[in-house]
Amino acid sequence: MAQAARPRNGPWALLDTDGRRHPLQNACATLALGLGLLALITAYWHDLHLVSSWAGLVGVLVGGWGQMISVTTAERFVLVVGLGTSALGFFLGMAHGGLFGGLVG
């Protein structure tokens, strides 16, 4: 039972619950959550609709891809939270002016 006493260190210890490293899946989860928070926070201001809509769109795409390749339940949890915040920020950004509001046409 020596493997049970091994400490789990590092920033990804909470996401790697199976004891193996998953750098791509962890990066997708972290990026989706970060973009979702950025989209949701910038959606508060109407003038930042370009940032919120683009960050939300990229966050939804990265989160969706991360869901397909995720391995552990902890990664999926972070991905679902990131997808939700990205989608909400994207929708609010679209309501405030959209992806190209004022730049095209």
Results as ranks from 00 to 15, higher is better:
Met1Thr: 14
Gln3Met: 07
Ala4Ser: 15
Ala4Leu: 12
Ala4Asn: 14
Ala5Trp: 11
Arg6Gly: 03
Arg6Lys: 13
Pro7Tyr: 09
Pro7Val: 06
Arg8Ile: 15
Gly10Asn: 12
Gly10Gln: 07
Pro11Lys: 06
Leu14Ala: 14
Leu15Tyr: 02
Leu15His: 07
Asp18Asn: 12
Gly19His: 14
Pro23Leu: 14
Leu24Glu: 11
Leu24Thr: 13
Gln25His: 07
Ala27Tyr: 04
Cys28Thr: 06
Ala29Asp: 01
Thr30Lys: 05
Thr30Met: 12
Thr30Pro: 00
Thr30Trp: 11
Ala32Tyr: 00
Ala32Val: 06
Leu33Pro: 01
Leu33His: 03
Leu33Thr: 01
Gly34Ser: 13
Leu35Asp: 00
Leu38Tyr: 03
Ala39Leu: 13
Ala43Tyr: 00
Trp45His: 08
Trp45Leu: 10
His46Val: 11
Leu48Gly: 01
Leu48Ile: 07
His49Pro: 04
Val51Asn: 02
Ser53Gln: 14
Ser53Lys: 04
Trp54Lys: 06
Ala55Asp: 00
Ala55Phe: 06
Leu61His: 08
Val62Asp: 00
Gly64Tyr: 06
Gly64Ala: 04
Trp65His: 10
Met68Phe: 04
Ser70Thr: 10
Val71Tyr: 10
Thr72Trp: 12
Thr72Gln: 04
Arg76Trp: 11
Phe77Pro: 01
Leu79Arg: 03
Leu83Ala: 09
Leu92Ile: 07
Gly93Asn: 14
Met94Asp: 03
Gly97Glu: 05
Gly98Asn: 08
Gly102Ala: 15
Gly102Arg: 13
Leu103Glu: 12
Val104Phe: 13
Val104Leu: 15
Gly105Tyr: 07
